[in-house]
Simulated scan of single mutants.
Amino acid sequence: MTDSAVTARLPRGRHGLPRETVVRAQRDRILLAMAEAMAENGYVGTPVASIIKRAGVSRETFYEQFRSKEDCFEAAYERAVELLLTGLLEVTGNAPDDESPQQRIARVLTAYLDGLAAHPAFARLFLVEVYAAGNEAITRRTTLQDTFVAIVADILGAETESQRFACQTLVAALSAMVTARIATDDIDGLRELREPLLNMIGRSGDLFGSPEPPGR
């Protein structure tokens, strides 16, 4: 599902939809508009007026939902996190009993890259614009990266301090590479990271954790 499919406009005229449905649809449109506007103009260069115009809502509607642009950004950031984590949790929670660490890390990496590629505007918000939104947003981003490190370390069987540090370094390198590709709208290059990364992990021996024979 792409960003454009995350939300849709309500039908024109009298639609008879419940109030909560209308409010939720308006909120979704505003969050997507926030992400798309920042993808074009950056956090600093995106005024509330641009978000309102792109979302097709009134200023009154915007301020019924959000106190400020900063408040809207925080909500859009949480939506970006939700979109990304949903795919990762599905992968980590439904692993076959006989799946090897190499196969599992392949599925997790694929879910991560595909999630970013499917939602480029939210991915840019999550990876790039977060650094313009203040210390609180950056702290949240760092916490989520630590969560991803824990997932990778668990899959690869990291037991020692040096193995956990290697997993931390791997995730930091991956974050830098995907951020560069999202920042330049290189979606194909984003997906092309998968095979080289998996090959590197497969050749790493016990660098990241317990060695496993390659295979996926």
Rank of each mutant, 00 (worst) to 15 (best):
T21M: 01
T21A: 11
T21I: 02
V22A: 02
V23G: 03
A25N: 03
R27A: 12
D28F: 03
L32V: 15
A33F: 01
A35W: 00
A35F: 04
A35E: 07
A37G: 07
A37C: 15
M38H: 11
A39I: 04
A39M: 11
A39E: 12
E40K: 10
G42W: 01
G42M: 04
Y43K: 11
Y43I: 07
G45E: 04
G45K: 04
P47S: 13
A49K: 10
S50Q: 13
I51H: 07
I51F: 10
I51M: 14
I52T: 08
R54W: 01
R54I: 05
R54C: 06
R54N: 07
R59C: 03
T61I: 09
T61P: 04
Y63S: 10
E64I: 04
Q65A: 12
S68F: 00
S68Q: 05
K69S: 06
K69W: 00
K69I: 02
D71C: 10
C72Y: 01
C72P: 00
F73C: 09
E74W: 04
A76R: 01
A76W: 02
Y77K: 07
Y77F: 13
V81R: 13
L84N: 00
L85G: 06
T86N: 12
T86K: 10
L88C: 09
L89W: 12
L89R: 15
E90I: 07
E90L: 14
E90M: 13
G93V: 02
A95D: 01
P96V: 10
D97K: 09
E99W: 02
S100T: 15
P101D: 02
Q103F: 00
A106Y: 00
A106H: 05
A106M: 02
R107E: 08
V108Q: 08
V108N: 03
A111E: 07
Y112P: 05
Y112T: 14
Y112C: 11
Y112I: 12
A121P: 01
F122Q: 05
A123V: 01
A123C: 03
A123N: 04
L125C: 07
F126T: 10
F126I: 02
F126S: 09
V128E: 05
V128Y: 00
V130R: 11
V130P: 03
V130M: 09
Y131N: 05
Y131K: 09
A132I: 00
E136M: 11
I138C: 11
T139A: 15
R140F: 06
R141W: 08
R141V: 06
T142V: 11
T143G: 14
T143Y: 08
L144M: 09
D146H: 14
D146S: 13
T147G: 11
T147H: 08
F148M: 13
A150D: 13
I151V: 15
V152N: 10
V152A: 10
V152H: 04
V152C: 05
A153I: 04
I155N: 06
I155A: 11
L156V: 07
L156A: 07
L156E: 08
G157F: 00
A158P: 03
E159H: 14
T160V: 09
E161G: 07
